[in-house]
Design a protein around this nucleic acid. Structure first.
Lengths: 354, 354
DNA sequence: TTGTAGGCGTTATCAA
DNA sequence: TTGATAACGCCTACAA
């Protein structure tokens, strides 16, 4: 079987209709088809008409891979998220997408499953596919590998970090966790608590580190000592993990456990509440509870949960805006936006039992 | 300024290091670099060594766009989700990603913002970029445009619909909403309810349609008539919208409003609970509540919310498995998996007040 | 206004 | 085992 010269490349093409087929059918040059499809004004209505008919008749759809390759740009930005189950994530995306799509960019997303490997795979995919920009909430911002990729600078696309940090200056949107944690401690200590516990996610991203640091510093500044037994890290921050931790805390005699707990974001609250309910622990009579992120669960739980809140949509929006600027002026000085955190008082904080 | 022949194409290339640069530096042919990078066994260790050194030294990263174009395949599947804020979405992704990444596929995601335009944009992106398969939970499965794209069949990649339906046979994962709604009605009617209200999302996707149909049929089968005043559709299904609806219901005199409400998935529960709390309405004494999807909020709310539950991770897994088969045998007969729904009894359903 | 042709970065075929 | 080369599908000077 000799390859039919009329159909060369057909095996690789997969039998799809290509721009050539359209051109042939319309009896015009390939470049004319391209012009019509890209809205180039220098086209006779008659020619446009014929091309459009051929496109319709053949059901042609552009192959954007060819287009991307030729143009060297994709009008697409990639978002890497560590934990797609985080209740805040949807709102961050909302803010980012609104801004970016208004500017003509498509937004695509990959989850990195809480692992540095996932980060690397997503980065390889997006950079390799030549997205025009990247919004990164990586699973692990402590690795040296992606720092190198950032440092490469030239050749890489503009990047904005979402509550992550790198050893070199970098565009980023940073929540003011120090301020938030301080407000939390003020609230709890003000209510009379001295034994305060803390449940956090992993330390390999900024929120964990910032919250822990602020917690320890804040306690010391108030003349208290963090009790290492009641500060727990959860990697990854699953509900099941948090439930075990909280159950363990609740098994201790009341006098020997924290009178108040601060629970970090992500899925931790779900697990903590499961354990609390299972133990029949009343809030705030038997224990006070303060959550690091405000969610419908925190709001609608009875009693309502005192929580830290930030403008989550604003995080996405700020990230998108920084990215748009960076894509416009790739060389510009790294800038970062800071998102304030406020406390929302509800009913889960009260005076300690003892 | 004449273009320097040594640097031709540099403007378009954007000054990135390419495979040519690596080849030149290593003193080998381009094809040899490609072989090394793709793990082709027919390569001398010495040559491999030199190439790897050059790659390292230049910080070279493959341009997957070129690779995609040449190969005609991407080892990537696209997922289109109507509502990224839906609490179930993360678990669907979890199930799908586990299965697909084990099979060597990367999973990328786009949200379609609850609009048919969003669906179209996402589809154009993914198909145009030649993903190998598509998992679709579109915002609107009633449009003729994407049906045409599906029918095109040849030329398009394999597709699995997630709780969506098309006029032609198609791979799909379908939740058994009829069964779920029937269980819900059995529960409520069994508790003595006769006036049952329903809050749903839009009818432009299957869950809305299937639930509504089953609701009406189920009531009639039990000798009851659905009261049109208490069946509300929400497009899109936002919390604010649901809150308004529920507040409206609660403003009516108790004798003239439903004694039980069934609340659909998505964000509707959040809004409904806000209104219920604001009105100080006690569950189930003053009204019974049953939710169409089980979430942490339903579980941890006090009183616990009776809910319909399905194996959400299983939806993603089933979708991924169907897609893997379809990608292996593109011509195969469309198959569909059905996901059962069960009821989880908690405390929000009781006898009617009157 | 339209056509011709070159090249984007890669892989695969073929010859050496 | 290695190298030269021809596509993949598209866009864009440039020429006509």
């Amino acid at each position: 079987m000799e390859p039919d010269p009329e159909r060369k490349g057909e095996a690789v093409r997969g039998g799809r209709v290509g721009i050539r087929d359209v051109a042939r059918r319309a009896g015009v040059a390939i470049s004319s088809v391209s012009r019509v499809l890209n809205g180039n004004p220098n086209v006779t209505p008659a020619l446009r008409q014929r091309v459009l008919e051929a496109v319709e008749a053949l059901g042609y759809q552009v192959n954007l891979v060819g287009s991307d390759l030729r143009r060297g740009t994709t009008r697409t930005v990639g978002v890497v998220i560590d934990d797609i189950a985080n209740p805040l994530f949807a709102e961050i995306m909302l803010g980012a997408e609104a801004t970016l799509s208004a500017a003509g960019y498509l937004v695509t997303l990959m989850s990195s499953h809480g692992t540095a490997r996932g980060d690397a795979a997503a980065l390889r995919h997006f950079r390799g596919r030549r997205v025009d920009g990247l919004l990164l909430a990586l699973s692990d911002d402590t690795g040296a590998d992606w720092h190198a990729a950032l440092a490469a600078g030239d050749g890489g696309c503009p990047v904005v970090l979402l509550d992550r940090e790198a050893p070199l200056p970098c565009h980023s949107v940073l929540s003011d966790h120090a301020q938030g944690m301080d407000a939390a401690l003020t609230e709890l200590v003000g209510a009379g608590h001295r034994r305060i516990g803390l449940m956090l996610g992993p330390l390999c991203t900024r929120p964990g580190r910032a919250r822990l640091r602020a917690f320890e510093a804040g306690l010391r500044a108030r003349g208290l000592n963090p009790d290492a037994r009641f500060v727990t890290l959860h990697t990854p921050a699953t509900a099941a993990d948090a439930e075990r931790t909280m159950a363990g805390v609740l098994r201790r005699p009341a006098a020997d456990r924290p009178s108040a707990m601060i629970v970090g974001g992500g899925q931790l609250l779900t697990g903590a509440l499961r354990a609390l309910h299972a133990a029949g622990c009343r809030l705030p009579e038997e224990m006070s509870l303060l959550v690091c992120d405000d969610t419908p669960l925190a709001e609608l739980h009875r009693p309502g949960l005192t929580a830290l809140r930030r403008d989550v949509i604003g995080i996405g929006r700020a990230g998108a805006e920084l990215l748009l600027e960076a894509m416009k002026a790739p060389g510009a000085e790294p800038r970062s936006a800071t998102i304030p955190i406020e406390i929302v008082r509800r009913a889960s904080v009260g005076p300690p039992a003892a």
